[in-house]
């Protein structure tokens, strides 16, 4: 006697989708699937990259209220306004160019959304309370990466010390000789410095040195 298949229980919706997903296509050629997969991949990757780049703009960064104070401080610096008109915007200093590190920075920046919502630094007083902690995080990252984001634009190799101010040229030569990195001297290059910043920076530098 033949088995009666109609008595078998029909798989659930998710199971049917799963089974269908892993079943060979009966109507589509391999070429069609490859071309469609390639186009789908390009669109998905392009869309993802475009969305990521949209979050990598100055306008996006300062659209949060929390960014008001550090934006105001930044606009008083040479990285915002200078004789050549070349600018370093927020992502130029805070987001690595290398893909892997950029993704990492974006993941880590998700905490900024949380703090924007709960208002961690939404007043000047709160900002000052957190300034040293925030600065320490940036200094640590800069020190660990040999000021990677600074070096996207600045390089000792292409500095002409003869047209720098005497003090700057001497300090840059000293930094080059001693293997120092940009953030070792330029902690307050784009934002105000917190009280006790020097002691904290020395602690950061010594901690990283000891960890090596």
């Amino acid at each position: 006697m033949a088995n009666n298949d109609s008595n078998e229980k029909r798989p659930g919706f998710i199971r049917r989708i799963w089974n269908g997903f892993w079943s060979p296509s009966g109507v589509l050629s391999l070429g069609f699937l490859l071309i469609a997969g390639f186009l789908g991949g390009v669109m998905a990757w392009g869309g993802f990259h475009w969305a990521l780049e949209e979050t990598n703009t100055e306008e996006f960064c300062i659209s949060c209220h929390s960014m008001t104070k550090n934006w105001d401080e930044y606009t008083d610096t040479i990285h915002y306004n200078n004789h050549s008109g070349v600018r370093a915007t927020c992502p130029d200093c805070h987001v690595p160019h290398e893909w892997q590190y950029k993704v990492k920075a974006k993941i880590m920046a998700s905490k900024d959304l949380y703090h924007e919502i709960i208002g961690t630094i939404d007043t000047d007083e709160k900002y000052e309370d957190h300034r040293l902690k925030m600065a320490t995080a940036v200094w640590t990252k800069m020190k660990k990466t040999d000021s990677r984001e600074c070096r996207n634009c600045h390089s000792f190799e292409y500095m002409d010390f003869t047209i720098q101010e005497t003090r700057a040229a001497a300090d840059h030569q000293k930094a080059l000789d001693e293997g120092k990195t940009c953030i070792d001297c330029h902690q307050g290059i784009a934002h105000g410095l917190p009280t006790g910043y020097l002691e904290r920076y020395e602690t950061v530098a010594e901690g990283l040195e000891a960890a090596k």
Partner: peptide, 15 residues
């Protein structure tokens, strides 16, 4: 924690 999560995500979307 975010540092580790970010590194993992970066690696998943990288090579």
């Amino acid at each position: 924690m975010l540092d580790i999560l970010g590194t993992i995500a970066g690696n998943i979307l990288s090579l």
